[in-house]
Design a protein around this nucleic acid. Structure first.
Length: 287
DNA sequence: CACCATGTTCCTTG
DNA sequence: CCAAGGAACATGGT
């Protein structure tokens, strides 16, 4: 489930359900996801602590907590990996097979489920230091993006996945942004023209903003085992304009480009699939 | 059985 | 030392 927009929508959904609640008990069912924190350490810190806030940084969820008596504020870092989900449910609903961490909150419980266990739920917040700028923040400037790109010869598609360049862009929205900006994914980062950097900057923000807006319209209900449509493959793809509104190129290999009809191509860069329209996203600027 | 999958990190190679 | 590419992680879907 995890790229910036999905995490943002999740954070907005979870915040009112958690803030003000006190953790009574912690159950770690898969130690791997809390690394390097130890189970006893997590329990010692969380039990009796109260949720004070929740925010997002890149693809991370940052939980703000305070210990008993409102002092000893600390943070907890969450990451969904490839398949993570988080929700709050009543105690009567059965735990899913891959529940990794469960927090008892009185009559309810918070559940972090992750089938592949690539996610994180930890007291170690050091990964935040390595993140680049927030693409939707008002101070994310196109010229700063351009300067960072200047220093790299890597294909722009690969560069967009580098969380030190911009925080929160993943494999799906990287393809989507390049399609929208009409830039070939194979273009070396430093070969982008200033005008292309500007349109990439604009496309990135538009793609992420639109995805958050789209996700916000879909009810989240993980506890039922369904996705509610938020997550790419829990799709509401049966609507005729799904691709127009949601994903315009990702996973559309061989299908007609929605702009020009040319077959969408799938290539692999750095072990990851990239989708693009060879007509709309030419290697060289046409003149 | 084969291949694919929204992410991050580590290891090897050049 | 750095950059780039690949594999590993773990499970499930097609």
């Amino acid at each position: 489930m995890p790229e910036l927009p999905e995490v943002e929508v999740l954070v907005r959904c979870l915040r009112p359900l958690l803030v003000g609640k006190t953790i009574q008990r912690v159950c770690v069912r898969r130690e791997k996801v809390i690394r390097p924190t130890r189970p006893e350490e997590l329990a010692r810190n969380l039990e009796g602590a109260e949720f004070k806030g929740l925010s997002r940084r890149g693809k991370y969820l940052v939980f703000e907590l305070s210990g008993k008596g409102g002092k000893d504020a600390f943070q907890l870092l969450g990451h969904l990996g490839m398949t993570g989900r988080m929700w709050v449910a009543g105690k009567e609903t059965p735990l899913p097979k891959h529940a990794a961490v469960v927090l008892e909150l009185g009559p309810e419980r918070f559940i972090f489920e992750d089938t592949r266990y690539f996610g994180r739920f930890t007291l170690n917040i050091s990964p935040l230091r390595r993140l680049g700028p927030e693409p939707l923040a008002p101070d994310f400037m196109a010229d700063a993006l351009g300067r960072s790109l200047q220093r790299s010869a890597q294909a722009i598609k690969v560069k967009l996945l580098d969380q030190r360049l911009v925080a929160g862009v993943g494999n799906i929205y990287a393809s989507e942004a390049l399609f929208r900006a009409r830039i070939s994914p194979a273009t070396p980062a430093r070969r982008l023209e200033p005008e292309q950097v500007k349109s990439l900057w604009r496309a990135l923000r538009a793609v992420l903003r639109d995805a958050i807006r789209w996700g916000s319209t879909v009810p989240l209900n993980f506890a039922s085992g369904k996705t509610g449509g938020l997550f790419y493959f829990g799709r509401a793809a049966d609507s005729p304009d799904y691709y127009e509104e949601r994903l315009r190129v990702y996973d559309r290999s061989g299908l007609p480009c929605i702009r020009c009809g040319t077959a969408i191509r799938r290539v692999v860069h750095a072990n990851r699939a990239t989708y693009f329209c060879p007509q709309c996203q030419p290697k060289r600027v046409r003149r």
